[in-house]
Amino acid sequence: MQKFANPTRFLRLQSAIQPWVVAATIVLFAAGLYSGLVMAPPDYQQGETVRIMFVHVPAAWLALMIYSIMALSSAVAIVFRHPLADLAAKTAAPIGAAFTFLALATGSLWGKPMWGAWWVWDAGLTSMFVLFLLYLGYIAVWQAIEDPARGALIARIVALVGFINIPIIKFSVDWWNSLHQPASVFRIDGPAIHSSILIPLLIMATAYTMLFLALHLSAMRAEINARKLRQMELAHVGSS
């Protein structure tokens, strides 16, 4: 891991893999949308509204995964002092916030026709809303604190403390009564949904993951360059 601690080496690696990640994202989205909107049958109970699953569930998975990556990066920054770890967490946060917003909004659009309500304050939905607030809080810490070292320290604490919420979201639908259905893909006794729905869902989830990777790599590159720019501007001002 320390091998990639050097930003120059990271930028070289990013340049090499970025086109492949973008190409894979486009192909997977095309395949996922075709299989989800054309090939998959309507559900016998939910009808066509089941197709909301193909944009809602991957967004929700990504929301949890990205926050976990931020917490892991923060832990790596504390333990190993990896120079890119804070940068990885910082640049992942806006993407995670966008996916969390999408999970909440598409969930609401799915809930209205299925439950008869746009929103209910049950454990699953509320803990997801708390995750959205945690993302915003994390972003606000970086924006609000001028001293980057102090900002990084507080941001790490927010990421690690907020990680407590991740298992709560994952298991809330099993632990408490909720309008939200229990886990139907990642279960000990296997997925509870038919392969005609499961396959498009997994393709879309992979497409979302590749999209995150493409955006994250690009954002990390921009952040490294932005830091380089600030240092060059300071040096330039100092020398002139």
Partner: peptide, 9 residues
Amino acid sequence: FVIASYALS
């Protein structure tokens, strides 16, 4: 609702 979900995404 389906169209709105995809459009928003």
